[in-house]
Write a protein that binds this DNA or RNA. Structure first.
Ligand SMILES: [Mn+2]
Ligand SMILES: [Mn+2]
Ligand SMILES: [Zn+2]
Ligand SMILES: [Zn+2]
Lengths: 147, 147
DNA sequence: CTCTTATTTAGAATGCTTCTAATCTGATTG
DNA sequence: CAATCAGATTAGAAGCATTCTAAATAAGAG
């Protein structure tokens, strides 16, 4: 039995409206699939997840989306700055909903990523990049293991 | 026409002897394949290369080694501390012959890796790792692009 | 509503890596 | 210097994440 709580319903409606605007602003048509995926991605704080993660999460939420669309969407969101891609492991490719400047703990045992606030960390002594090259960003990965 | 220069020949001999000892020390049988690959890897300074890189380099050098052996060897060398694996890109997996503590420039355009000496860089303000976890290493990747 | 074009999709294809099971080789022993 | 045997190599199959293809579908404009 499903009970609809008015305030929640209103909130959900506002969310999907916001998401629609956000997609339009990024030059992306607010399709059923993109709205649903954006909801899963951005309605619960900072997250790190793989394409497969998002795909099964969508399935669990009753949203039917093909894996091809998952990949298309993750890449489009990344291009438009709504997501950031994190490279910590040769085999897993993570997408990060926290697009601000920050760094990560990476747990080699279970593949978990934990944010380190950008203000916390400072990298000093960086040499100049080679001639004709610009620094795009500096990534710090602190690899950790269970003791 | 190939001219054999005595001192080089002697040197090559010493090398293969050294490599044999090094493999034995790592608990690895000094097989024809491992000696040849170790030669390619360690006889020309610091290098960053993929399995495919090493495979074609071996072919070019006239050493017949299967791709399976390339992978086995790279992993064994990594486990025994003769190589370090570098994760900078979800698609390419690099092995680094420089096992000392150091960091990298990563060129997003062509996938090139450039060493940054460990002494040059300092990372400050690292928070404590979560309870029960140890820091294994801290990797800094400076992502650069052609201007 | 109609039309145009973007988007989605299933399934095939790709590329890198790992696995399998058969063969071979290095090292030890008699 | 054989015989032996565990460890190493191999070709090819399998696996897995990701990308591609071409056909079907849905969004937005008029
Ligand atoms: Mn909300
Ligand atoms: Mn030498
Ligand atoms: Zn993050
Ligand atoms: Zn290096």
């Amino acid at each position: 039995m499903v009970r609809v709580i008015p305030s929640t319903a209103k909130h959900a409606h506002r969310d999907s409206h916001d998401l629609t605007e956000r997609l339009r602003a990024a030059g992306l048509r607010p399709t059923r699939q993109r709205i649903a995926l954006a909801g899963l991605l951005f309605d619960q704080g900072d997250r790190h997840l793989t394409a497969e993660d998002l795909h099964s999460e969508a399935a669990r939420a009753g949203v039917k989306v093909s894996l091809a669309t998952i990949y298309n969407t993750l890449h489009q969101f990344t291009e438009s700055g709504m997501l950031k891609q994190v490279a910590v492991d040769a085999h897993r490719s993570y997408f990060d909903t926290n697009t601000g400047s920050h760094q990560h703990f990476y747990c080699e045992d279970d593949g978990a990523l934990i944010d380190i606030p950008g203000e916390a960390i400072a990298v000093s002594g960086l040499p100049m990049p080679p001639k004709g090259m610009d620094v795009e960003r500096v990534d710090v990965v602190v690899r950790i293991r269970k003791r």
